[in-house]
C-alpha cells in the first residue's frame, strides 16, 4: 500500500492549539494556559514536528507596529524548539504558514507552549503536526 505523499513527509498525528488570542502587552508575550503535551515515545523513531500558524498583525499596514506575527515554541523548561512567522498578515485577513523543515522534539513526555513577539499579534490557530520523513 502506498501511503507516501509527494513531499516526503507523512503526518502521523495532529495537535491543535486554538485561539483566537491577542497579545496584551508590548514585546514578547507568553500565553501560559495554551500548552500542547507530546510523548515522543508514542511515535516511531525519527518522528519530528512541523508547525502551522494562522495569524495576523492587527495594526498593519497603517499602524505603529510593523512586526510580523511570529510565534516561538518552547518546551516546559523554556528552551526554544521552533519559531514560525506569517507574512505580516493584516488583521482580520489572517495569513497562514507552515514551517519548512521538520524539527526535533524532546524525548519522552513533555509539554510545549507558545510565545509571541509583538503587541498586536493576533493568533487564530496553531497546529503541531507530528511527521515522519520518507
Amino acid at each position: 500500500m502506498t501511503i507516501q505523499n509527494t513531499l516526503g513527509l507523512k503526518v502521523i498525528d495532529k495537535k491543535s492549539c486554538m485561539y483566537p488570542k491577542t497579545t496584551t502587552v508590548a514585546g514578547v508575550t507568553t500565553w501560559p494556559t495554551n500548552k500542547i503535551a507530546v510523548n515522543m515515545n508514542d511515535y516511531p523513531v525519527g518522528a519530528k514536528g512541523v508547525l502551522l500558524l494562522c495569524g495576523a498583525n492587527k495594526y498593519l499596514p497603517n499602524g505603529t507596529d510593523t512586526t510580523a506575527c511570529e510565534i516561538t515554541m518552547k518546551d516546559s523548561g523554556g528552551t526554544t524548539i521552533a519559531t514560525l512567522a506569517v507574512n505580516q498578515g493584516n488583521w482580520p485577513a489572517f495569513d497562514i504558514k507552515s514551517s519548512v523543515t521538520p524539527f526535533s522534539l524532546n524525548s519522552g513526555l513533555d509539554y510545549y507552549y507558545f510565545v509571541t513577539n509583538a503587541y498586536t499579534d493576533v493568533v487564530s490557530k496553531i497546529e503541531l503536526y507530528i511527521v515522519l520523513e520518507w
Binding site: Q4, N5, T6, L9, V11, L52, L53, S98, E127, Y129
Partner: peptide, 9 residues
C-alpha cells in the same frame, strides 16, 4: 489549518 499535502495520498 490543514495542509493536505503532508498527509498520505
Amino acid at each position: 489549518l490543514i495542509n493536505i499535502d503532508k498527509f498520505p495520498t
